[in-house]
């Protein structure tokens, strides 16, 4: 594994040892299955104890793991006949947002996602998943199109946030996000959002005014990145670990705060360890939620969507 997080290392070292032992046993034709079994059990236990005791900052690191499956991976594994559609019809096509149409379990759907790259080259092309206004406007165009053709919309959220640059400001970053929020709240088709990595600030919220907000168990969603929070509040960007703690940004926190509808399990060790398993779990949950939503009339769906966001927040 080319990149591993610090707390993953003992597990990965152990797994490498097991692999070595296996190939050694095979090569020399010796039966070491007892030893291998023992080590495998130990690795399993180590994984369990590590991943059930992650601190928020470690969750942030997993959520940002460069090998974590991105929206295109989930699209590949869950959506048949996917066709990517480009452009906002106003300015350009934002490579930090992927959108298109395809089939999910046989039914036509519109899929929209933030998209990061997995290496530097891809990340430069994708602007590290940070969208410009044209990204949010492309998403809105595809959502309106989904409404017209009665297709449910599935959104995958994974972004550090909306891009902070001159062009983004000149083209109305704030207005683009605001418009998404307002239009999504009244969009006459079911919307399901899955946070698959990092849900950063307004840039993530722009795809999250949905009937169901779901998060993978090691994903995070917050008002700002822990680094930005630390630098704004304590003028010290290095206190990100503390900020991650204070912001209550894990899936488990959001469920408790009444923002989330459900947490989606990940394979042991995180989604990046087993793409197929991760996608299967995500697919099952989307399916359950879409099936449930389809029992309601669109009026009821819209009414419930309004009530859902209306109720979020805590007064003194």
């Amino acid at each position: 594994m080319p990149s591993s997080l610090e707390f993953e290392r003992p597990i990965i070292e152990l797994e490498n040892k097991i692999d070595e032992l296996k190939s050694f046993a095979e090569e020399k034709d010796i039966d070491l299955s007892n030893e291998i079994n023992k080590l495998e059990n130990r690795a399993e236990e180590l994984k369990k104890s590590t991943y059930s005791n992650l601190i928020p900052w470690q969750k942030v690191l997993i959520a940002r793991h460069p090998e974590r499956p991105n929206a295109l991976d989930y699209i590949k594994l869950l959506i048949n006949d996917f066709m990517e559609l480009h452009g906002d019809r106003l300015y350009g096509d934002d490579p930090a947002v992927v959108g298109g149409i395809g089939r999910f379990e046989g039914r036509p759907v519109t899929v929209i996602g933030n998209i990061k790259g997995k290496d530097t080259k891809q990340n430069v092309a994708r602007n590290f998943g940070m969208a410009h206004p044209e990204g949010y406007r492309k998403a809105l165009r595809l959502m309106k199109q989904a409404e017209k053709f009665n297709r449910p919309v599935i959104c995958f959220v994974d972004t550090p946030g909306a891009y902070c640059g001159m062009g983004a400001e000149e083209r109305g970053q704030g207005e683009a996000i605001a418009r998404d929020l307002m239009e999504m709240s009244a969009l006459k088709t079911p919307l399901v959002t899955v946070v698959i990595g990092e849900g950063g600030s307004g840039g993530a919220l722009a795809f999250s005014v949905a009937d169901r907000i779901l998060m993978q168990e090691h994903s995070v969603f917050s008002v700002s990145s822990p680094e930005a929070c630390a630098s704004i509040l304590w003028k010290d960007g290095t206190m990100a670990r503390e900020a991650a703690e204070a912001l209550r940004l894990t899936a488990q926190d959001l469920l408790e705060l009444g923002v989330l509808d459900n947490v989606i399990k990940e394979p042991l060790g995180g989604a990046h360890r087993e793409y197929n398993v991760a996608a299967k779990l995500v697919g099952q949950e989307i399916s359950t939620q879409l099936n449930e939503l389809q029992q309601y009339s669109i009026e009821t769906i819209l009414d419930n969507r309004y009530k859902k966001f209306r109720a979020i927040g805590k007064i003194g």
């Binding site: 996000i177 605001a178 929020l181 307002m182 709240s185 009244a186 600030s201 307004g202 919220l205 999250s208 005014v209 969603f221 917050s222 008002v223 700002s224 929070c229 704004i232 509040l233 204070a246 912001l247 209550r248 940004l249 926190d253 959001l254 705060l257 923002v259 969507r305 309004y306 966001f309 209306r310 979020i312 927040g313 805590k314």
Partner: peptide, 19 residues
């Protein structure tokens, strides 16, 4: 958004826009 209320602050953007 007010940092000290975390995700609850962020969601006020959705709430006000929905209204």
């Amino acid at each position: 958004a007010r940092m000290q209320e975390g995700i609850l602050s962020l969601m006020q953007m959705a709430k006000t826009s929905s209204a």
